[in-house]
């Protein structure tokens, strides 16, 4: 078996629609994950059981089961109930999955902000809400950025699992092409190239943000 370098170039254009799909699934999955994560983080921190118990349960279930299972589970259940397309199911599954992890990232960041910050804000007469929004969250976001960057990269790669529910993203595309042209290694290489390209962009972007934020001063 020989490795066909020429095939890398020849088949590259066939991957472009799949490369786009990977972006779409990942992007919306991450956005949904951040929204769910932020809400869940606050629910989890709350002292009221009505908020923190569902949040704990959500995190418990998501962290304790494989993403592939979650994708399949949501695909079959959402399809039955809402007549969702595979694409929507994939985005919802990725979002719900990442929401649990991002919630823990935000929770850790918020709780790492010294109690004194909240006390100083409250001693000025600020409401709890205002103190959270103006004083705690901006600092927590800054602290969460490295972990968030890491989680976004994981989410991007995890979008490949959407292949299990017929989403023709990079991995499924590579498998389908490879099965028909018998150049599986080459097709997987092309997919790998796209993943590396995307994750490099993320890494670079988050590095930029970190540098910029640390320049604006922090204790």
């Amino acid at each position: 078996m020989t490795y066909d370098f020429k095939a890398l170039m020849d088949f590259f254009p066939y991957f472009l629609p799949a490369a786009w799909l990977t972006i779409v699934v990942s992007f919306f999955g991450i956005v949904l994950g951040v929204v769910l994560g932020l809400l869940t983080a606050f629910a989890r921190i709350s002292s009221k059981p009505v908020f923190n118990l569902p949040a704990r349960f959500y995190i418990f279930v998501i962290r304790g089961t494989p993403l592939l299972l979650q994708i399949l589970f949501l695909y079959y259940s959402l399809r039955g109930i809402f007549n969702f397309e595979a694409m929507t199911s994939a985005i919802v599954a990725l979002g719900v999955h990442n929401g649990a992890y991002i919630a823990e990232i935000f929770r850790g960041a918020i709780q790492s902000i010294a109690v004194g910050q909240m006390e100083a804000a409250r001693s000025l007469g600020m409401t709890y809400r205002k103190a959270i929004l103006r004083i705690v969250l901006p600092q927590a976001f800054k602290r969460a950025i490295p972990s968030l960057g890491n989680q976004f990269i994981i989410a991007l790669k995890d979008s490949s699992l959407a292949s299990a529910i017929t989403i023709k993203e990079l991995l499924l595309k590579a498998q389908q092409l490879g099965a028909s042209n018998f150049k599986m290694m080459e097709m997987l290489t092309i997919a790998a190239f796209f993943y590396l390209f995307y994750t490099s962009i993320f890494t670079w972007l988050f590095h930029k943000i970190e540098v910029k934020l640390s320049a604006s001063g922090n204790a």
Binding site: Q117, E119, A120, Q139, S216, G217, A219
Partner: peptide, 8 residues
């Protein structure tokens, strides 16, 4: 005691 200025 620990100032508690807002670092951001």
């Amino acid at each position: 005691q620990h100032f508690n200025l807002f670092p951001h």
